[in-house]
């Protein structure tokens, strides 16, 4: 009898015996907490979780979770996880990665995992900096930012991970904030249950090397004006007084005031996470400060056959055509001769 079924799992079951080595105050702690809270509630036996990571602060994650885990090499976790998921489709396979790991050295594996829609969950902790190597610009560091490797200001435009994922054809794309625990937990839960590749960007503060990168989104005084929460089927409304919204003018989004002097609510853009194609999600991903509130929540969630499901279909079709293969027949081939 599986002990996990006999005794319901608790958060404690997912805590490993290894001391957590992230800096105090690091946003990575929040993700660990949310994951440890989430996993026991999914109805999946503990032994069926596998967490894979690459290199970087975020990639220490598997050590702190008492599941099967692999701390691999820089950028390659999506490829390793893809191989594991194809070999063992019944497992719940997760990748925990960072902005350098996923978008710089591992960019190719990242986009191709999303393209294939292999059933893995990719959680990207985006702190806009290389933390483990102590403060170099990453692919999400903003233009002009001063870091140890860009002392005169960063000259490279950043990737937006959400836009990149949507461009790669991702079927589940979400963004959450490390301090917004309830919404982070909910997004992770939906990611956990998504049948194809689920991508979650977690905006995570590195209090050592890029402190305050998301201050506008987290500070009580500014956050309600700086962020907008995406809700499926609901108009895009934000602001402390919920008095602002996003309206489309042609293909351009604009911020409008709601009310008798401004726009009516039925003029606002209505979020549809199941919209055909990635266009709406991509448009939303373009909303950024300054000028726009930063969207949080699920940008896109559509169900398309996963890579492993398509593969299983090929196997079933091949076996229907040829029967379950026989090794002796295979070795004999179609064209043999006898030597007496």
């Amino acid at each position: 009898m599986n002990p996990a079924i006999e005794h319901p799992l608790t958060r404690k079951d997912f805590e490993s015996d290894q001391a957590v080595r992230w800096c105090p105050g690091c946003g990575d702690h929040a993700l660990l907490n949310q994951i440890q809270k989430l996993l026991p509630t999914l109805g999946i036996p503990r032994e069926d979780f596998a967490f894979v990571s690459g290199i970087g602060c975020a990639s220490r994650f598997p050590y702190y979770l008492d599941t099967y885990g692999m701390h691999a090499i820089h950028g390659r976790a999506p490829a390793i996880a893809s191989g594991l998921k194809l070999a063992r489709p019944e497992l719940s396979v997760w990748v925990v990665t960072g902005d350098g790991d996923a978008l710089a050295i591992g960019g190719n594996h990242f986009i191709h995992a999303l393209r294939r829609n292999v059933g893995i969950r990719i959680v990207l902790l985006n702190n806009r900096i290389y933390g483990l190597t102590k403060g170099q610009a990453s692919p999400t560091t903003e233009l002009g930012e001063h870091t140890k490797s860009t002392p005169l200001g960063n000259v490279d435009r950043p990737f937006d991970p959400v836009a990149l994922a949507l461009g790669a054809g991702a079927t589940f794309v979400a963004r959450a904030l490390d301090t917004d625990l309830a919404r982070l937990g909910e997004v992770l839960r939906r990611a956990a249950l998504h049948p194809g590749t689920a991508f979650v960007e977690v905006l995570q503060n590195c209090n050592m090397f890029a402190d305050g990168s998301y201050r506008a989104l987290t500070d009580r005084a500014t956050r309600d004006e700086a962020r907008i929460v995406l809700e499926h089927g609901r108009p895009l409304v934000f602001g402390a007084a919920r008095d602002k919204g996003i309206r489309l003018r042609g293909l351009q989004a604009e911020v409008v005031a709601i009310g008798p002097e401004g726009a009516r609510e039925d003029e606002l853009l209505v979020h549809d996470e199941r919209a055909d194609g990635g266009a709406l999600g991509f448009l939303l991903a373009q909303l950024a400060a300054p000028g726009f509130p930063v969207p949080l929540g699920v940008f896109r969630a559509v169900e398309l056959p996963s890579c492993e499901a398509r593969h299983a279909g090929l196997v079933a079709a091949a076996q229907a055509r040829h029967g379950r293969g026989d090794l002796q027949t295979l070795l004999a081939g179609g064209n043999s001769w006898e030597i007496g």
Partner: peptide
Amino acid sequence: KHLDVTTFQAEDEIGGICAAIGAAWG
């Protein structure tokens, strides 16, 4: 495929070996 063979044409050489490592782990 009917002989229980999975082939994964990876995005690059590194992806090929890494997927194989993941499968071996599995």
